[in-house]
Design a protein around this nucleic acid. Structure first.
Lengths: 348, 348
DNA sequence: CTGAAAGCGCTTACAG
DNA sequence: CTGAAAGCGCTTACAG
């Protein structure tokens, strides 16, 4: 081991001018070989390359961006990275965008609209070339902030009514339809919903999907069977408690997302109820460990990789100006994984 | 709803010069009121503020950074955001750094050393003011890249032998010690380890902690009882299979991290073994759902929030130049949560 | 194929 | 308290 490497501020890194002087060429020539933007004779090229190696020159992305107006940086704004759905999406977006030559700036607003506006302003100031956002709320201020960005925007998971741009969303109604159909096929007739945020696209769509599916199955709509869990564990816990406290409690529950499923399970165990013994449970969103721990959660898995890949692809297309015109919406299908948390009712 | 807001490239945003012209002052005055960097008379200030409002002027962080040499951007380089430990740490780092006025650039290298170097080079080109990194490998090239950064570095989770900088790590030996002590107290004498990466700081420390604890308990060191799971689910699955295939299989297993625990559980269920019926299991790293699904995983929880908070705090101190001198290492303690995945041996 | 020069949008000594 | 001007490190017409 060659002694300790010490972290220290480098004493002003070499600039293009210095490389030019070293190589005894003009700064233009240096730029031309660095960027391959203009043909350079072999002699000069060799001199420049030697000078670069010798000086340890690295171009300043900052200066380049100021000149070109492009930062090759993309903003990624979500509510909560801790939600496994977003974690997976972020992972894929980061990977694909890096491969396409873009860095990603991550912002989590924890569902705080003000923080969200602030973060978008921050990304605007830093002149991101594009933005992928899973919007919190549907405020006019948000839409204005996005429009003012002056860069293409791709929405993930949620659509923003009244704002035209690319988006990639789940077929929420179909996903909910599968969940309900799975349970009715098992004989369930009272199916409770631990619902999402009513003010969000996903919350509304999943609720609508639930209602549609009940209707298709010829089941009545009982408002008591829908309790808002706000896509959060603690709220879902309370919602599950309310559902199971009904005079005629449901025999099955649907959790509107991953965190709701955990909260619902907590609520049940707090009440001393077992799943699927006392109630069946189906969730929208899958977990990597759902196959392993008990009850093995029946879930409608979202194609998280596709979410990230499609969002990154569409954004890159827009940033490169390859796709003019109005926003495109990609609708992805979920996949039901039937496991042990849902079972047939005893009396059919 | 006032019609659709259309996402479009703004036709060149207003500049400081334009604001100055509008307000009929010098560009210096505009800068002074924008940054509060120099006192300005009330009359001029009012004119400037009006001009800013009227033109919708927003300063360019890019131009400012080029001048000042500070980007107020921090790099965050980790192996895999999908690992819940890093997810939580990233969440906290992002929050604290944003509060301190820094944006964060996220890079995941998926344990690819080459990709890691590339991403560090990318962040260097973008002139990040600092870097938080959970290093993949301990290569000399990596240490050189970090030193060349010319900005303070804070290590998370892993220390880099031969590179002096701030770091925040778990007391891995103590954590392992607690896991082993918990199991020996339950009467276990053959305790298998689904070990981490031998070439990493955490892998080595946790293994050493396991060995020390066995010694303290007066138990023999059986090399067969240590199988490498590489901190990954698939490898851990195979390691668990090897452990349970021993002539004299262990009565308890320790998984070296969260993903190893999931892999170990998969391995067990593949072999038709139950936990804790056939084997007990203790993991380093906790899960938010560990209290809810069966078996409820006994785990040594890492203080993930503290990891993020301390790393962010130390980096900010360094970036502000408040703390000169050699690297500081903060060692955090884990907390054992005894749950149902570990139980007493039948014959004591 | 190569160079001298303007300019991207700011900040900041230096004068007044 | 205010202004004119240099310069951060690049790219890119414009000439030759």
């Amino acid at each position: 081991m060659a002694g300790k490497t010490r972290a220290n501020r480098s004493p002003s890194r070499p600039t293009m001018v210095q490389v030019a002087e070293l190589a005894e060429v003009s700064i233009f020539t240096v730029s031309a070989v660095v960027n391959g933007t203009s043909p350079v004779s072999d002699v000069l090229r060799a001199r420049v390359e030697a000078a670069i190696r010798q000086s340890g020159y690295r171009p300043s992305a900052l200066a380049r961006s100021l000149r070109t107006g492009q930062t090759h940086t993309v903003g990624l704004s979500i509510g909560d990275i801790t939600n496994p759905f977003y974690t997976d999406v972020v992972a894929r977006v980061q990977r694909d965008l890096h491969a396409a030559g873009y860095a990603v700036m991550l912002c989590c607003n924890d569902r705080d609209v003000t923080l969200q506006d602030e973060q978008i302003a921050l990304m605007r100031a830093r002149q991101v070339d594009g933005l992928i956002v899973s919007p919190t709320g549907e405020d006019a201020r948000l839409k204005k902030a996005l429009a003012d960005l002056g860069a293409p925007v791709v929405l993930i998971d949620r659509v923003l009514p009244g704002f035209d741009c690319d988006a990639v969303v789940l077929d929420n109604r179909a996903a909910m339809g599968e969940a309900v159909a799975h349970l009715t096929a098992l004989g369930h007739r009272r199916i409770g919903l631990v619902a999402g945020i009513p003010e969000s696209f996903t919350g509304r769509e999943r609720l609508a999907g639930y209602r549609d599916a009940l209707a298709r199955a010829g089941l009545p709509q009982d408002p008591d069977l829908v309790q808002v869990g706000s896509f959060r564990s603690a709220e879902a816990l309370a919602a599950a408690e309310r559902l199971m406290a009904l005079a005629e409690p449901p025999t099955a529950l649907i959790a509107a997302n991953n965190l709701s499923a955990i909260g619902t399970m907590k609520g049940l165990s707090g009440l001393g109820l077992t799943c699927p013994g006392d109630v069946s449970l189906v969730a929208i969103d899958d977990f990597p460990w759902a196959d392993v721990f008990e009850p093995k959660l029946t879930a409608v898995a979202q194609p998280v990789e596709a979410f990230g890949a499609e969002a990154a692809r569409m954004l890159v297309e827009r940033m490169q100006g390859r796709v003019p015109g109005r926003g495109r919406t990609i609708v992805l299908r979920g996949t039901l994984h039937a496991r042990s948390s849902s079972r047939a009712t005893r009396v059919t």
